[in-house]
């Protein structure tokens, strides 16, 4: 006999209760997709704002992701493996950018790197001016989207069995060897999922970028800022830009959903049942 679809708790009642939220999420996306013809999208893609913004978004988000992974991985490892009050405080600190509005983070960055900021004058004396440059775009993206990677990687590192790391060490691996040959491969699905989330968040970054980097075509005007600018002059261009950004996000979402499970599939293949013939002789 076949089990009814959805089992005991996922039946028609649950579906009915789920529909409102599903509609709230889906309808605007459908409206966006339906509200624009292919020729309008093509026209939007030829708009002078489009190419520089797309190229800038691609460059800055890749740079931001590189910074996040390189600097975030050691932090995630420490959060996962160390214990004590300091660790819990650091965890809280890492999560803060998620709950603090991006515009506030933009102001905070100005207060840090601005001409009258905490580090601004010192950096200026070295000839480094961060605000309203492409580097500022990257900095804003890093600060706002790093928590997603760090949380994902730390959760993945926490799931790595202590005993596997000890075994790796007794088999002769150095701490770094055990980290790269055991911890990282096992945590990779979680790290990739976290990195993809971070990337998606960086791609959509608006508030912190606008306040800290400004909105200059070619140097700080990323896709979301270009949409904002286009909206003031030509709604059709804004819609076309929005569609391209949505498409890029969907392209990110697919590997975001499939890659981690593909990576982890071989880690938890179901155990074969015990058979007498497979036993040691």
């Amino acid at each position: 006999m076949r089990e009814p679809r959805g089992g005991l708790w996922g039946g028609r009642g649950a579906l009915l209760a789920a529909i409102p939220m599903l509609a709230i999420v889906a309808i605007p996306l459908i409206a966006l997709a339906a509200g624009s013809s292919p020729s309008e999208i093509a026209a939007g893609a030829r708009h002078p704002l489009f190419a520089p913004a797309l190229w800038l978004s691609a460059r800055t988000t890749v740079a931001a992701l590189a910074v996040i992974v390189l600097a975030g991985t050691p932090l995630a490892w420490w959060l996962a493996r160390a214990s004590g009050r300091g660790v819990r405080a650091a965890e809280l600190l890492v999560d803060l950018p998620v709950v603090i509005p991006p515009a506030v983070m933009g102001i905070a960055l100005l207060q840090t790197f601005g001409p009258h900021g905490l580090l601004g004058p010192a950096l200026a004396s070295l000839g480094i001016h961060l605000p309203f440059t492409t580097s500022a775009v990257v900095a804003a993206q890093v600060v706002v989207s790093a928590p997603f990677y760090i949380q994902g990687a730390a959760a993945a590192f926490r799931r790595v069995d202590d005993d596997l790391l000890i075994v790796a060490r007794t088999l002769g691996q150095s701490p770094l060897g055990a980290f790269f040959r055991v911890a990282v491969p096992l945590a990779l699905p979680g790290m990739v999922a976290g990195a993809a989330l971070s990337w998606a968040r960086a791609l959509g970054e608006f508030g912190a970028t606008l306040f800290f980097a400004g909105n200059f075509t070619g140097s700080t005007q990323t896709m979301p800022l270009a949409i904002y600018t286009a909206l003031e002059s030509d709604t059709r261009v804004a819609v076309a830009l929005a569609l391209v950004l949505a498409a890029a996000s969907v392209l990110l979402l697919v590997p975001l959903r499939t890659l981690p499970s593909l990576l982890s599939r071989r880690l938890d293949r179901p155990s074969r049942p015990l058979h007498a013939h497979s036993l040691p002789k």
């Binding site: 596997l164 075994v167 071989r266």
Partner: peptide
Amino acid sequence: IGYVPQGYGLFPH
């Protein structure tokens, strides 16, 4: 030292 933990400690990857 050779260490075989509970659950054998084979690397699943």
